[in-house]
Amino acid sequence: MKNRRTYSRIHSYAKAVFLFYDMIGYIRDVSETGFRVEILAEKLPETGKTMHTTIIAHPDLDIDPFNVLAAVRWLKRNDPTIAVGLEVVSFSTLRGKELYKTLVDIFREPVA
């Protein structure tokens, strides 16, 4: 099947906390427009729903936690977790937008 993605997904690592939803997860890939989170949850988020998310990068990356509003685009059972594809809708601050770009850039660059 042809890959129609405009932005390629990059394997990455970060933590995600979905504010107000009692959900946490691990970000496993990111792109300029969205990210995939593997969540551990009993209740599933609905497709199309927007979620206030705090992204917490690995301490080695020296990136402060930041908030992003993201929309659920797809869900897939991926035992023992549930994979959730999220599209970035907006950032609460310009700083958050910059930090997200930094996160994507860090994982895109090959590590020497």
């Binding site: 301490p59 994982f107 590590v111």
Partner: peptide
């Protein structure tokens, strides 16, 4: 660095 570990584990 953790990025290096991740790149190897990948």
């Amino acid at each position: 660095s953790f990025q290096f570990v991740l790149s190897k584990m990948d």
